[in-house]
Amino acid sequence: MLPGTIAKTVHWAFGQDIAVLPRIFDDGITLAVMERRLDSALTLAVRAQLCHPRGLEWQWRGAPGPAMQEDLARRLPAPEAGEALVEDIGTIAEAMAYLFSTETIGIRLRTLEGAMCPRFHVDNLPVRLVSTYAGPASEWLPEHAVNRDGLGAPHPHKPDIVADPGTIQQLGVGDLALLKGGGWVGNETRGLVHRSPQPAPGERRLLLALDPG
């Protein structure tokens, strides 16, 4: 967490209970994070997928439920060890559908060996949930540390996006983070600025992303 000296600019909410996630509906909040640690069964399931030589890139768009979980289980590199992971993603998807009153969820689960979006940016959609099961988790910037004139496609005449590199924040492995984007009505110029970190050589990330609707 950031020092209390900048409390007046806080636009994030962190907590260890799922009740923190609805804070994303607050006008001043652009990041709501349920902090959690993966239990041993889930950790072993994740490790089994990452130890398999085959990578994973699974997508689903539709209702969460048994069909979604069955499709995911079939696509896992190590399905015989993936039960805890499938159950966890099923629970998260159902919670997301309930929170945003939708029957349709877009889900992506993928392994990454490089930074998917290495440049700080804002998602052009209302909201996205991200969770890193393994590897370095997503990085984000508090608003006071952002120079928004630098966002968008890189250009030699654009200023640096990061006004103060010492303020770069990072989520934890296992955290469930709701990121409000520029597509959220009333938040068009205040979407959370974030990026994918660069894994160390030989390291793999397992990243989950969910979009409601």
Rank of each mutant, 00 (worst) to 15 (best):
G90R: 04
P142W: 12
P159T: 06
L72G: 06
E203Y: 09
N187R: 11
V127G: 11
G191M: 10
H194A: 06
V193S: 06
P53F: 08
A63N: 13
L171I: 12
L50A: 03
A7T: 12
E143P: 10
H144A: 01
P126N: 04
P66C: 02
A137M: 02
T43N: 14
T111W: 07
A163M: 13
P3E: 15
L208G: 08
L38P: 10
G183E: 04
M116Q: 00
C117R: 02
Y133R: 03
L210D: 12
G114I: 06
S40H: 14
I29V: 04
M96Q: 15
I24N: 01
P53H: 08
E35P: 04
L176R: 10
V122D: 13
R204S: 01
W140V: 05
A84I: 03
G90E: 06
E35F: 10
Y98M: 01
S196R: 04
E103F: 11
G152P: 08
A137P: 00
R148V: 12
G186M: 02
D211T: 03
V130F: 05
G135P: 00
G186H: 05
G62T: 10
F14Q: 06
S138N: 06
D149C: 09
A84C: 09
V122L: 02
R205M: 01
R36E: 10
A13V: 12
L151N: 08
M116Y: 04
P197Q: 08
R61A: 14
E83D: 00
Q170Y: 14
K158M: 13
I92R: 09
R75A: 15
D175H: 14
G82W: 07
L125T: 08
P77A: 07
A209W: 03
V185K: 02
R36M: 09
H121C: 05
M96C: 02
W58K: 15
A41H: 06
D149R: 11
V146S: 06
S131R: 08
F25Y: 10
D149A: 13
N147P: 11
M116L: 08
R54I: 09
F14M: 05
P142D: 08
A32P: 04
E143M: 06
L207N: 05
T9G: 07
T104A: 02
M1K: 07
P79L: 11
A7C: 11
N147H: 15
G15R: 03
W60G: 10
P66L: 03
P126G: 07
G186R: 07
E94R: 03
R195P: 02
Q16I: 11
P64Q: 09
A84M: 12
L76W: 03
L44R: 14
E113F: 06
A81M: 03
G202M: 13
A7I: 13
H11S: 15
G114K: 08
Q49S: 09
P201N: 01
R54A: 15
E103P: 10
F14A: 05
L179C: 13
V86P: 00
A63Q: 11
K8Q: 15
I105W: 07
G150H: 14
P165L: 05
P64M: 12
P79T: 07
S101Y: 12
A115N: 11
A84G: 04
S40R: 06
Q59H: 08
G62P: 02
L179G: 10
D164A: 07
A95C: 13
A137K: 00
D123C: 14
P77S: 15
G191P: 10
P199Q: 03
N147M: 15
I107C: 02
I29E: 03
Q59E: 13
R119N: 03
P126D: 02
